[in-house]
Structures are given as C-alpha cells and as structure tokens.
C-alpha cells in the first residue's frame, strides 16, 4: 500500500517535472497566435474537390453578348491572359506603395492603433469570460472542467 502510494507520488512528481519542462516559450506562443490569425484569413480549409476541372469550358463569354448585337470587331482576351498580364502579389504592391507614398497615409500606415483599454479574456474552451491562464501554453480558461478539456484537446497537443 505504502509502496503503491509512493509510486503514485513519484509518478505524479515525474508528470509535474515533465510538465514544467514542457512550457511553451515566447516564440512558440507567438507563432501559435500568428497561425491562428492567418487561419482567420483563409478562403478554404479543405482542398479543391475538382482541382482538375477545366474551368473555362462552360463559362458564358462576354463576347456572346456583344456578338449577338453584331458590333464586335476584336477577339476578347482570356481570363488566363489577364492572370499573366497582372500578376503582382499583394505583398509586392504593398512594398512598392511604401516607396511611392512618401508622406501621407498609405495602406500600411492607415492601420488603426492598439486600444487604450485593457484586453478582455475569454475561455478558449467555452467562450465565457475567464480569470485563469494555462501555465504551459498561455491559453485562457474559466474552470477546472474547461481546463481539463483544454489539456485533453489542445494545450501542448497542438503542433503549430
């Protein structure tokens, strides 16, 4: 009995130890936060179900409208042509804009500042206001129950 108890003790001591070792550092926490924000910008979370579908086939063409009136002289350019013609990414344009917009507000500087008011905290599990912070990962929780769910589902199990 006594031996068992001490084994449990030792074991829980080990768990404690390993938990203490496994505390996410600042960099991983920031990386997680950034990933979460990036996910909020995503258009899709699954793959294109018909990636092989040739899209141009059944698409009505502007030319049909014009031709039906019989006034069109020149051949319309394809969507693919414009993809090749205008291929600057947003990041590229933002970078060029920085050089072009000397003085005055630009896309970058128009972003509004941080709030003067303190952040509010909500439980990562149930969404209600929370008072506690998970030590290993920094997530917020509101109750022992939500902490349990958090540890079982996310916390250190997330590979971000």
């Amino acid at each position: 009995m006594a031996a068992k108890a001490s084994a449990v003790e030792r074991q829980s001591g080990r768990i404690k130890d390993s938990n203490q070792k496994r505390i996410l550092d600042e960099a991983s926490r920031n990386r997680r936060a950034r990933k979460a924000l990036e996910a909020l910008e995503q258009d899709n979370f699954h793959d294109d179900p018909h990636a092989d579908l040739v899209m141009s086939k059944k698409i009505p063409k502007f030319q049909e409208t014009i031709e039906s009136r019989g006034s069109r002289k020149k051949k319309p350019k394809s969507a693919e042509y414009y993809k090749q013609r205008f291929r600057k990414s947003l990041a590229q344009m933002v970078e060029e804009d920085k050089n072009y917009m000397t003085g005055g507000t630009s896309y970058i500087t128009a972003a509004v500042e941080a709030s003067r008011y303190p952040d509010r905290h909500f439980c990562a599990v149930c969404g209600f206001p929370s008072n506690y912070t998970c030590v290993p990962c920094g997530a917020r929780y509101c109750s022992v129950r939500c902490l349990g769910t958090h540890q079982d589902t996310r916390c250190l199990k997330w590979t971000a």
Partner: peptide
C-alpha cells in the same frame, strides 16, 4: 484588394453577359 485577375475577369464576363 483585387489580385486574382483571371477570377475577376471570369466573374465580370459572367456579370456582363446576357
């Protein structure tokens, strides 16, 4: 911001069609 011109052109062609 508008960056995918093949997609926009396809949608505009449709919008302007009969």
């Amino acid at each position: 911001y508008l960056v995918n011109w093949d997609v926009q052109k396809t949608v505009w062609d449709y919008i302007l069609s009969n």
